[in-house]
């Protein structure tokens, strides 16, 4: 996968659980799990904005591009 989600790491750094994040962001825990496990096909700017706001981070802290040699 070219885009890697680093939500686990940042949650650990902030000492926050996925449940807590889900409550604060207003996205269901099922959806956040999809994002966390890298199964998501897209992320809305509004969701990204809310996550960054709650976790006080930049989009680049949540996701990184990894060259997997496919392109």
């Amino acid at each position: 996968m070219a885009i890697e989600i680093k939500l686990d790491r940042i949650l650990l750094e902030r000492g926050m659980s996925l449940t807590e994040l889900s409550e604060k962001v207003g996205v269901t825990i099922a959806n956040l799990s999809i994002l966390k496990t890298g199964k998501a096909k897209a992320i809305r700017f509004s969701t990204l904005e809310a996550i960054c706001d709650v976790l006080d981070c930049q989009p680049g802290d949540i996701m990184v591009y990894v060259d997997d040699g496919r392109g």
Binding site: D8, L11, L12, S17, L18, T19, S22, E23, G26, V27, T28, I29, A30, N31, S33, K36, R44, T47
Partner: peptide, 19 residues
């Protein structure tokens, strides 16, 4: 480092997310 990622009943009982 494990978090509570199980399907929390409390959360799922809430109204569906707006999206």
């Amino acid at each position: 480092g494990a978090d509570k990622t199980g399907l929390d009943d409390k959360i799922l009982d809430e109204p569906p997310a707006p999206e």
